[in-house]
Design a binder for these strands. Structure first.
Lengths: 340, 340
DNA sequence: GGGATTCCTGCAATCGATTGCTGAAAACTC
DNA sequence: GAGTTTTCAGCAATCGATTGCAGGAATCCC
């Protein structure tokens, strides 16, 4: 009967299915979209045929035509940390929540871990024609590049800190206040020799340090030391161990730049026979789910990751719809547990 | 001069750039691809023009034409665990390594977290025309669905366990042996009342339990208990705490189904005044980077995640190239630390 | 200078969908 | 039964690239 259609083999496109059904491609397209423009019986016949042959229309073609990809890019710029993995737990935690919110709304996720060597890395992503919008996790040291793109590309929301006058829309916590809270907590615990453990290249991080300094200054203490620690997990542990080994009991209050750094710090202190929180107090930053499960449990500054992810997605959707959204700065919260 | 081209505004496509350069669209396409088919001077002129106007060709169109998307789907089926997040640390760890390997080879990553309610969830992903290949993390309870698709869709590699005669290509660790190693470790530590903590719905997990049972039987011990624990992090902690609270000192050797469960277990035991490893021994599974940083450090079964990720990507590339690849089963390794 | 090569460039088909427009057939109105 | 409205299917343009083929111009060879 149907010598026009390859008897075996799968149906490759809408035209083949159309021939099989004895209608035109346009009709098939409408039928599969369940459009009332095509007669109910024809519609159901075509749908049944599609099901039977396991045919599904090519999304690439659809999206090209529609000019709407239903894909959001989630991008982690690793300008200052070339060796950091995607496996950074903070990133992973927020990614999980972003993925939940986006998939619920019918969007797919394209993941890019970018090491910004070419200076148009963000333009390339944004301009690829593959994305309806972009979520950036962290500003890294790429503030300028982000500003440049934000000037003309609206559907982009960035997790990070807010600088006065910036163009791009950020969602984040007030890192300076967070740093201050950590400092105040250490000071209340009677600590006087404070240190900040973590690199300060990314703006978020340097603000946390400044907050810690604010607290120290307000309490009449000397300026805290700043000890670098990379975020790449393979070297972080060693670096922290080296710091702890070198400094001995020079510091008695350590504000870590992240929960992960704090965990490593507690571990390294234990290895040197220093007990937390009896001899040294330690605070983290992020309040990852893990922070509650370590022994001792981590005292930390909560970023409210689920709320942050929701805010990012909401702002992004508004921007995709054409609105202009303000940046969101959430309040950090001190979560007192066992390490400070 | 050029009234054909919108004086302001960005260049939207190759045709506009062609008009600007005074050549045809085809030539622009070739020039941007740096094809030697176009004269060097024209080529450079066009490239300069593209740079100047910040023009980048639309990837969607290119990929439709090329029939090659340079996108790999990474999919986590959550059949048995509807509430599990992407933030599961094991998934995140392997995702990090997969992302590294894929981006190095010029592929983008499309992330899907799927709750398989419709039974053609995998067909829909594989058939979307958006992907050159698919990596599945975990078989969940979807063995049949995966087999069905693997019968006709070659470029797919699955992290999980190997059943005799299966069609789909897996990479994973010998989970049964891993479970046995954990059991032997507990038994060597003098433990006699063993329990497995974790759900056994996914094949990987049930094999780990069977391995533990093998070890118990071989040592003449009674069959270990199996205590369910969901992988969703928000309920896991409570469930584990409840188990520990209920069982008291009924068990003295606990093989956890994952490092995360082990961490929660150690924490819950500490909350009940039970010391690890003095009173109870605990083993994990996965050997996540975290396992080394907890206090006490976790004794666990190593899955060698980096090697596994590399193997998955390599097998996938071979399959994309048309080859048929064998499943890979890696040897698990007992990593003795402080909890058993 | 004539014929053979080489070098470029443009034309038009193609990838696989969607959708505005046109008009034939069916249904309805009076 | 003529005229009007509604329903539904097909045609062809479109999204934005890539690429095989054809052929004109330039170069080379003798």
């Amino acid at each position: 009967m149907n010598e026009l259609v390859p008897a075996s083999g799968r149906i490759r496109n809408i035209a083949e299915l159309a021939r099989l059904a004895g209608v035109s491609a346009g009709t098939v397209s409408r039928a599969l979209a369940n459009s009332s423009l095509v007669n109910k019986q024809t519609r159901e016949k075509i749908q049944a045929l599609a099901r039977e042959h396991g045919f599904r229309p090519n999304q690439m073609a659809k999206r090209l035509r529609i000019q709407q990809t239903k894909v959001i890019g989630i991008v982690v710029p690793l300008g200052h940390e070339r060796r950091q993995h995607l496996s950074d737990p903070f990133f992973m935690a927020i990614l999980g929540h972003l993925a939940d919110a986006l998939t619920e709304n019918g969007y797919d996720i394209m993941l890019s871990r970018v090491i910004p060597d070419a200076d148009d890395w963000l333009e390339r992503i944004v301009d690829s024609g593959m994305l309806d919008g972009v979520l950036l996790i962290g500003q890294s040291d790429q503030f300028e590049a982000i500003e440049r793109v934000a000037a003309w590309y609206k559907p982009m929301v960035v997790w990070g800190s807010l600088r006065p006058g910036q163009v791009h829309c950020t969602v984040g916590v007030d890192n300076r206040t967070g740093g201050r809270l950590a400092g105040e907590c250490l000071i209340q615990a009677g600590r006087k020799r404070l240190a900040f453990l973590g690199d300060t290249l990314a703006p978020e991080m340097s603000e946390r340090f400044l907050g810690l300094r604010d607290a120290a200054v307000a309490a009449g203490l000397p300026e805290p030391a700043q000890l670098g620690a990379h975020l790449a997990s393979d070297v972080m542990a060693d670096e922290i161990a080296a710091h702890i080994g070198r400094m001995g009991t020079e510091f008695d209050g350590i504000a870590a730049a992240s929960d992960l750094i704090a965990m490593h710090t507690v571990r390294a202190l234990a290895d040197h026979g220093l007990s937390v929180p009896d001899q040294v107090s330690v605070t983290g930053f992020d309040d990852l789910p893990l922070a509650e499960q370590t022994i001792p449990r981590l005292t930390t500054i909560s970023q409210s990751i689920p709320a942050g992810a929701r805010a990012m997605v909401q702002a992004l959707f508004e921007r995709i719809a054409g609105a202009d959204t303000e940046s969101v700065q959430m309040d950090p919260l001190l979560v007192r547990r066992d390490t400070a």
